[in-house]
Computed example of a mutant assay.
Amino acid sequence: MNSCILMAEIVQEPQLRYTPDNQTPIAEIMVEIAGLRDDDPPARLKVVGWGNLAQEIQENYHQGDRIIVEGRLHMNSIDRPEGFKEKRAELTAQKIHLLGAGATLTTSTTPTATTSATASPTTVAAPPAPSKPRSAELSKTPAYSAAPSNNPVDYDDIPF
């Protein structure tokens, strides 16, 4: 399965165009992804949205926005004027989520927790109770006797 989720920043305004039959809108945006380490340069990637998503991209997303993109990653071959083919990665978006104002794009190998004086407490719901009593589940399992038997067990005959 080819599925990617990326957190990125839009570095170029979305460009809207249409297929040759002028029926299907296509939006392209260039995003920048932070490097893994502080000294790694950021990577740039073209993100493409089709149909209704393309119109949504054009209307709602702008340069400087921080987003989370869900989609499929693939490689494109481009003929260069120098006489060789260049391969570029491209992400076909399926969903885009706008991150809130002030969100930072950082990478970390260890989880971090942040707290705020204005943060509201979070309620965590308990898992639902089982529909059947546990004893009913146990009664369906085969019963094995722990009592010693007169027949020795031949471990070669036990199927694994």
Rank of each mutant, 00 (worst) to 15 (best):
A103T: 09
A125F: 12
A89F: 11
I67F: 00
L98P: 05
N150L: 12
L138Q: 12
P127K: 11
T104S: 15
K132C: 05
S108T: 15
G83A: 00
A89E: 14
I67R: 04
E90A: 09
S116H: 06
Q63D: 07
D154L: 04
Q58E: 09
D79P: 05
D79G: 08
G83N: 02
A146T: 11
E86D: 14
T92I: 04
P130R: 09
A117T: 09
L105C: 06
S120I: 14
V153G: 06
T104C: 15
A119M: 00
E137T: 13
H74D: 10
A125H: 09
A89G: 12
A119H: 00
P148W: 00
S135N: 11
T110S: 13
T114M: 14
I96N: 02
A119R: 06
K132P: 02
E82G: 07
P133Q: 04
K87Q: 09
P142N: 04
E90T: 15
A147Y: 02
V153Q: 04
P130D: 01
A143S: 14
Q94W: 08
E86M: 11
R88Y: 01
A129C: 05
S108F: 00
A119P: 03
V124D: 03
E59P: 04
P133F: 03
Q58S: 12
P133M: 04
T109N: 10
I68Q: 07
N60Y: 00
S149E: 15
E86A: 13
D65E: 06
G64T: 05
P142V: 03
T118Y: 00
A126G: 06
P111I: 14
P142T: 04
S120Q: 13
H97Q: 08
I78T: 06
T110L: 12
Y155F: 10
T118E: 10
P128T: 07
P148R: 15
S116E: 07
T106R: 10
A113P: 03
M75W: 13
G102N: 08
Q94Y: 15
R134P: 07
E82H: 02
E82M: 14
L99K: 13
I78V: 12
K85F: 13
R66C: 09
Y155M: 14
E90P: 13
K132F: 05
R80E: 12
L73T: 02
G71A: 01
F84D: 06
R88N: 01
P128D: 05
A136K: 14
T118L: 07
I96L: 01
A89W: 08
R66E: 09
D79Y: 11
T114Y: 10
S120N: 12
A101V: 11
S139P: 01
Y155Q: 10
